[in-house]
Design a protein around this nucleic acid. Structure first.
Lengths: 227, 227
DNA sequence: CTAGATTGGATAGTGAAGGTATCCAATACT
DNA sequence: AGTATTGGATACCTTCACTATCCAATCTAG
């Protein structure tokens, strides 16, 4: 197929496809003449991948790094996986000699290995520091509960990774890391609302008037426009 | 204190503090003359809150909506909590009459209430659609495991919310929702690496050579610079 | 009491990110 | 043969979050 069909089928503006080509996010098509090139479903697939990641707010240069990794067949798989996941946000500097005290303590409590070379260590440290600077601390209870249940989730993630081909594994790992994060976040928010509904507002769901705090009346739960 | 002391103590450039004042993110100080105003620790606290949220990538106009909510003492608490959480990213349109089939099915399976007016419903639908457009589907196994463990986490979150004052509750809910999300994401990534280390690379941790896949050699786990 | 510094407030400029629009000459369909 | 489309290059645009500059009023040190 030609570029405009690719763009139309993927639902991406032609100018944007050209932009992705320029930026190296999409590999060039097979040129059939000076003004024609052929694209196939590897291009479709790539375009979908790029859009999926970009849709989650990943900067294009990071996406570029990720797709490059999935393609490059050298290197140890574990290294490639680490690099790929590292390309995902948030982006924090990670000098390999730095110390991350909050994360070190958290991992020690959970019995996980602490290796400051893992980028996620710096990410966690950053997140914990943000928490602190907002006046919150993560209690031991919270660490334990989060740790236990997050580990269950992560174990499943790893177990469900395809092992068919190296490229597929890397791609699935990156996509899974990036795309299931918003899923988990949204599920958490829904679970919050589910539980808060019966604690804070007895009448929110009128056939479950079993609240601990019946001092709140029927809520208009209709969300308004922001601002 | 005067504006420059506020800026210095909070570690925020003076020009930025002025910008936040202009944008209504920070309430004006008590003017003592035409060219002087006094700021106190409510301003410090607010500045910390704004910076903490901005540091997680929240757009300033959403932060503005959130701080406005935490302050406004009318309204039902449950409604305010919903609105506050709604102000957090990701931002998806949520026409209240729309249907969200993927999310409806997921929530039905988990036995949670489906209410399309919850913004998180649209968020989840969006995330699931992104997954699909990248060629992935969320298996029932994954839904069950995620649902079970995320609910445990969310229940703890709600139970640990302070109930001292309405403003504190809203503030803690918003901060907790926004600031613990990256914590959870980073913990998940670390748990991935923890598990992947022994599955994919027997020699990654040389005293645990119990890999299922001994076809990978000693990994240089040192993350390189991206690209 | 005056000279220099600082302040609040307004206005304009900056730089990155992520596109979008326009032009062009070389093909391709009809 | 004539219109349309293509690949490719270049220029432009918009948003976001600051940052810098001005300015006149006012504070402060000598």
């Amino acid at each position: 197929m030609r570029i405009s069909e690719l763009a139309a089928r993927a639902g991406v503006p032609l100018a944007t496809v050209k932009y992705y080509l320029r930026e190296g996010l999409l590999m060039p098509g097979r040129a059939t003449s000076a003004t024609q090139a052929q694209y196939d479903d590897t291009h479709m697939r790539r375009l979908g991948l790029v859009r999926a990641l970009a849709g989650q707010g990943l900067p294009l240069d990071k996406i570029k790094a990720v797709v490059a990794l999935a393609e490059n067949p050298d290197e140890d798989l574990f290294v490639a996986l680490g690099k790929a996941v590292m390309a995902l946000p948030p982006y924090v500097d990670n000098p390999p000699d730095a110390d991350y005290p909050r994360t070190r303590a958290l991992l020690a409590r959970l019995g996980q290995i602490y290796d400051p070379r893992f980028t996620a260590v710096a990410q966690l440290e950053h997140a914990l520091a943000a928490l602190e600077s907002a006046g919150l601390t993560m209690s031991e209870r919270r660490i334990d509960v989060y740790g236990e249940h997050i580990r269950e989730i992560a174990d499943l993630d790893v177990d469900l990774l395809p092992t068919t081909s190296r490229q597929e594994t890397v791609e699935a790992a990156v996509l899974g890391t990036a795309l299931y994060e918003p899923v988990l976040a949204a599920m958490r928010r829904l679970a919050h609302q589910h539980r808060a509904a019966r604690i804070f507002s007895a009448a929110a769901d009128s056939d479950h008037p079993d609240s601990d705090h019946p001092d709140h009346t029927e809520a208009d739960r209709q969300p308004q426009e922001t601002q």
